[in-house]
């Protein structure tokens, strides 16, 4: 540990600890309090109810689809925005942040309106037997919409920072575009793509506001975990709700921790470990 030359350690530690305890940790105690009322077998039964298991599957499947879509969409957009100059680029760039700025409930209602059988887009797809609203595709759509910025915004800066000579070296050696991309660019941006996709996945797991308006909420088919939690509350079963909440939280926290560690490693590799990242 190095000497503390800079001022403000005590002050910032004090403010931070106060805030973290009051705003972040104190509410967690109520979760623990609810869980403490359950025995292990009750807890296990509460989190392995067959209908709940089905909702885990639906949520995971939809979140995976959404983040996969975002990985591809984000990669394409990050590439176009980082590499090319064209009219309207600034608008396209700004639009990428729209899902963060738009309230999720508004997004949910709008998507349900557009993609239902009689909506502007849904009506086009209906003749081909494609139903998006009220199917698991709708859930995936809402999740994808709300987490668009993650991949774009993690990959874009990395692409922008890549020196031109990386490309040139590959191309002068006579490699094809695709081969050069795969061998030269991809290794550089892979960590960012994975980080962004992971964040998008974590966000999708907990999404409620947008999803609830477009999910059909059919048992075993289109019920998401957040809805099962709301159902437990409806039954005045706080402990059961807390049990479900704890599972979702644990998965997301582990995911975020993994991303943080991965990022740390990546960061050290890039910057030669000069700072304890």
């Amino acid at each position: 540990m190095r000497a503390r030359v800079l001022p403000g350690f005590t002050l910032s530690l004090g403010v931070t600890l106060l805030f973290v305890s009051l705003i972040l940790l104190l509410p967690m105690t109520s979760l623990v309090g609810q869980l403490a009322g359950l025995s292990w077998s009750q807890y296990w039964a509460a989190i392995t109810d067959p209908r709940l298991l089905a909702s885990y599957r639906v949520t995971l499947l939809a979140a995976a689809t959404a983040s996969l879509f975002n990985a591809l969409f984000g990669l394409l957009l990050a590439w176009v925005l980082a590499r090319y100059a064209f009219p309207g680029k600034r608008v396209l760039d700004a639009l990428m942040d729209l899902p963060f700025a738009l309230p999720t409930a508004v997004a949910g209602i709008t998507l349900a309106t557009l993609y239902s059988r009689n909506g502007a887009i849904g009506a086009l797809l209906a003749p081909y037997g494609i139903e998006i609203a009220y199917s698991w595709l709708g859930i995936a759509l809402a999740m994808a919409f709300t987490s668009v910025p993650f991949v774009v915004r993690t990959v874009q800066p990395v692409l922008e920072d890549l020196p031109t000579r990386t490309d040139e070296a590959a191309l002068t050696l006579g490699a094809s575009n695709f081969y050069a991309f795969r061998r030269v660019i991809w290794p550089h941006i892979r960590p960012a793509v994975i980080t962004g996709t992971g964040l998008s996945f974590a966000r999708s797991l907990g999404e409620f506001g947008a999803v609830i308006f477009i999910a059909g909420n059919m048992p075993y088919e289109t019920e998401v975990v957040s809805l099962m939690l709301a159902t437990r509350l409806e039954e005045y079963d706080y402990a059961g709700a807390a049990a479900i909440a704890s599972v979702v939280m644990l998965v997301s926290l582990l995911l975020l921790l993994a991303i943080n560690l991965w990022q740390g490693r990546f960061y050290r590799r890039l910057h030669g470990g000069s700072f304890p990242g």
Partner: peptide, 30 residues
């Protein structure tokens, strides 16, 4: 500054990203 528990603190700050907003509201309510 470098101090023990720094990484943990950084993970704490991610809690709101990990907690679905509905759960957050519920925790405060309880």
């Amino acid at each position: 500054f470098s101090f023990p528990g720094r990484r943990l603190l950084q993970t704490f700050i991610d809690i709101p990203f990990a907690v679905s907003p509905v759960v957050a509201g519920l925790l405060y309510l309880l």
